[in-house]
Design a protein around this nucleic acid. Sequence first.
DNA 1: GGGCCCATGTAAAAAGTTACATGATTAA
DNA 2: TTAATCATGTAACTTTTTACATGGGCCC
Lengths: 190, 190
Amino acid sequence: MPPAGGPSRLELALLGVIQGGPQSGYDLRKAFTATPLSHFSDSPGAIYPALARLRERGLIEPAPRERSDGRRRVAFRLSAAGRRAFLAWLRRPPAAEEVANDMDAVLLRFAFMSQAGLDLEEIRRFVDDLEGRLSAHLRGLELFLDTAGAAMPPTGRLAVECGLELVRGYLRWVAHARAQLGAAPKGEHA
Amino acid sequence: MPPAGGPSRLELALLGVIQGGPQSGYDLRKAFTATPLSHFSDSPGAIYPALARLRERGLIEPAPRERSDGRRRVAFRLSAAGRRAFLAWLRRPPAAEEVANDMDAVLLRFAFMSQAGLDLEEIRRFVDDLEGRLSAHLRGLELFLDTAGAAMPPTGRLAVECGLELVRGYLRWVAHARAQLGAAPKGEHA
DNA sequence: GGGCCCATGTAAAAAGTTACATGATTAA
DNA sequence: TTAATCATGTAACTTTTTACATGGGCCC
């Protein structure tokens, strides 16, 4: 729904999957239902219009068809401009506001990074930035609880504490991710 | 965007805050900017139309004004039907699909429970149901990782592992919440 | 009186949801 | 041949976003 400036989250997810190899609308629908990450609609009413938009903007283009069984099938691949836009989006460091209430978008970016060929150092820098934002957000939540917690109804306070526990979970994951990324031998991505 | 059947998430959040006492549109905007839980837009273009819809459907009604300083101010309170609808929403046990990709909605329900006067036993049952769903989802993610994890690009796999860590965070919180709720003396809510 | 916050709204445009429509191909 | 699956789309509707518009009260 949001004319949020650049491509929508669905469009970016589409670009991300397409980036891994030409995909038809039907492929993409299946990818979204099969994959645990991302809760995107598998409805044709979302995907086909989104593909049409991406095509109009020159971010994707029809790929030459290989498997020429009789079926009608329109596979798309990224155009040069599409690849540029996608990489620019991937490289955007996590913003404070995003970390506070749109971690899905941050994780979506991260998920596509190695497949898109970002090098280890860039990915590590992203993780470092993310950790800083998460720590700040954690402090903010703790401060809020200290200030307003006592006056809140029990389940309200518990809900905020849940947010806190989540951020701690993210921070634990950051440590894990850094270990995995650090351990990987140089140039071992994709 | 979604005509998902009942009231939208924003509408439910509005009902939830109004439930705690009469609120004007401006109050609600402030509540959404000040509160850490929930990332709702503070934009008038979202809130005033939503209030108008709720009013048309008979879920809220203008409250008699108390602070009669000169300012124009239209405060709303829940109608009887509004209270019924809100309670019915609160009491809906968490569904599997919700736990997988809309925990925000689950937490939003939980946050309003004690203020709305649900009794401790109901809240505990909700938490028990939630734990069951979370455990099932955890197993699902673990299975996915065992099956598909090896074939995934590194950051893709890490992103799924992040989802896993999150679910573990939620489960830790469930244990904490149960302890808090169990410890509270009978009838100590709101 | 001028500027700032309070307070409520509207208008245009975009994106998603549900539901429907259509046709080809494969398998029973 | 009949049903299921592959595959792509359209139409109506709803909500949200951004941006603008308006006006009253308060404080210096």
